[in-house]
Write a protein that binds this DNA or RNA. Structure first.
Lengths: 188, 188
DNA sequence: CGCCAAATTGATGTACATCAATTGGGGTGG
DNA sequence: CCACCCCAATTGATGTACATCAATTTGGCG
């Protein structure tokens, strides 16, 4: 959809679908900094007229585009827009700091457990889909979200499966068998 | 100043000094999620009337307190306040995501290097103090900011010193000898 | 001068990364 | 409909960066 560093063409209010926002280093290391879905504003905030993050659709996405240039002026004349924006960014910040905690302090299986309850709560709150939970992220993408490698993520899934906390269904979905124990593991 | 989970008494606009905002798990693991200083709004955003983070002063702090309850109503009737808030939170989010990248992808010495350029830029931009740079954080606090242990932080400092990139002056200050090489190490 | 907390440095352990091989599932063409 | 392919996922073997445990050293301050 857009790449970090590009001049801002516009911002996207997601109507349908899921997108991952990320930053990548010169050597290719990537950090997914947030999962956005219906209701979220994508590509915002920007810095000096350039996107801060890259946005990649994880599913088919429908979005409403806003002109990046008129946006600032429009905001300063519409209180309700400004307040909505505060809400949107506050939520992003809340989730980002939560994930700093996750990445900085939790061990691999705790991180994966946290990821699962986060995604589960996110999807159900936005009415996307239900049990079994379809992730829409590959192991590699989950790894780049959690600061791990795809192998370690896979091993954590296997461990949670062996503990009977989750069940792996098909390639891209999990059934949460023991919500309470998963939350405990996630340190929420 | 305030503890995560407490009912919000008020928000604090920092006039002078430095404060660390953090979250801690039940088992004591702590993540410092941001360093705030003059101009920043502390204790904001909150969630359901309770502080999201704990705030600890790293130096003597002067701050202007705002009533937490009137704040929301006041915002929705003052566009300029709402816009200023968007600016403040956007900046916090920008720094938070940068640090997700740092914690999730960089190696220990890269993290410490990044911390040093971040602090250096932060302090000079807010006219706090200059070379040699006084950190105002202990090794333990730096560790909790970067998702490392204090020993690893100390070793990284020693390594940077041995590389002649920085010099350690006194207990709490560093002189940046090779700014360019430090930035390269920091992956900025 | 001597105390105490913080920092440094060393020795060892371990969780995760890396390298490598195998398996499995979904889609396409025979 | 089955065989085949291909990419993602799993699993295993080994390496390594950082954590942990432990002992000094340093520096600020009464």
């Amino acid at each position: 959809m857009y790449r970090a560093g590009e001049p801002v063409r516009g911002f996207y209010k997601i109507i349908k679908g899921i997108v991952a926002e990320s930053r990548t280093l010169d050597d290719g290391r990537r950090q997914i900094i947030g999962i956005r879905t219906v209701g979220d504003l994508c590509g915002y905030p920007a810095h000096k007229g350039r996107y801060l993050f890259s946005g990649e659709p994880l599913t088919a996405v429908e979005a409403c585009a806003f002109d990046g240039h008129r946006f600032g002026a429009f905001m300063s004349s519409h209180v309700d827009l400004a307040c909505a924006l505060v809400e949107d960014i506050s939520d992003k910040l809340k989730r980002a700091t939560e994930n700093m905690m996750v990445i900085g302090q939790l061990r691999s299986t705790e991180r994966v457990a946290h990821f699962l309850v986060e995604i589960s709560e996110l999807y159900t709150s936005r009415h996307i889909d239900t049990q079994p939970l379809t992730l829409h992220l590959t192991r590699h993408e989950i790894a780049d979200y959690l600061g791990l490698t795809l192998e370690t993520v896979s091993r954590s899934f296997s461990k949670l499966r062996d503990m009977r906390v989750i069940a792996l269904v098909g390639g891209d979905a999990v059934a949460i068998l023991d919500e309470h124990r998963l939350s405990t593991l996630a340190n929420v």
